[in-house]
Structure formats: structure tokens, C-alpha cells
């Protein structure tokens, strides 16, 4: 599977699998839930945008972004599965999804 598509799929599915727990951890009366949903939807759009328009992996810029996503995916996995500070988790998600958006835009 192309690295780029795999990266975006991995991020989308990681967030999907942990979405219920992340929701439960959102603090009432804050923007946690709204921010979480915004990033989840962005991750889903990034993935489907990519799968609609696949692209070569041999683009050096793409390779760099894939490497960034790979590094962030590891950290993201730790953050979403061991939810402590939900605000910090949402920040980590936001950063990772932004990289995903850059990758999905390489079409």
C-alpha cells in the first residue's frame, strides 16, 4: 500500500477506534468536544480525499510528510489510548491531522 495512503488511513482509523473514549474524556462546558469533532472530520476528509486521488510516493515532499506523520502517529497512539489531559490529547490530534491535510493536498 502506498505509504501516504497508509499514513492517512492509519490516522483516521486510530481516531475512529478511540473516538468513544475521547468523547467521554471531553470536559463539559469547554470546546473539547467541538475541537475533537473538527479534527476527526478533518482526518476523515483527508483520507477520502487521498483515496479519491491517489498520488505517487516518490515525490520527495510527500516522503517528508509521510515521515512526519509516521513519527506523530506513534505519539498520537500513546496519547489517545492513555487519555490523561484531554486538552493535550486534542492538541496532539490537531497537529497530526494538520500534517495529514498537507499530505492529502499533494494531489
Amino acid at each position: 500500500m502506498t505509504d501516504a495512503l497508509q499514513s492517512l488511513e492509519d490516522q483516521y482509523i486510530l481516531l475512529t477506534n478511540n473516538l468513544s473514549n475521547l468523547e467521554a474524556a471531553c470536559r463539559p462546558g469547554t470546546d473539547d468536544m467541538s475541537n475533537l469533532m473538527t479534527q476527526y472530520v478533518a482526518s476523515r476528509r483527508n483520507y477520502f480525499n487521498c483515496i479519491n486521488q491517489m498520488f505517487h510516493d516518490d515525490d520527495p515532499a510527500v516522503q517528508d510528510l509521510v515521515a512526519q506523520m509516521s513519527a506523530q502517529q506513534a505519539a498520537l497512539k500513546v496519547a489517545v489510548t492513555g487519555i490523561g489531559d484531554i486538552a493535550g490529547v486534542i492538541t496532539a490530534i490537531t497537529t497530526a491531522v494538520q500534517v495529514g491535510a498537507q499530505l492529502a493536498a499533494k494531489v
Binding site: 500500500m1 475512529t16 491517489m54
Partner: peptide, 18 residues
């Protein structure tokens, strides 16, 4: 396109499972 086909199927299965 084969990789996109695999990804589409797998992501559907994963979301359904979740």
C-alpha cells in the same frame, strides 16, 4: 489502483467494527 481498493475495504471494515 489496487492499493486504493484494499484501503477502501479495510477502512470500511474498521469503521464498522468500531
Amino acid at each position: 489502483e489496487e492499493k486504493a481498493y484494499d484501503s477502501l475495504n479495510n477502512s470500511y471494515d474498521d469503521v464498522a467494527k468500531a
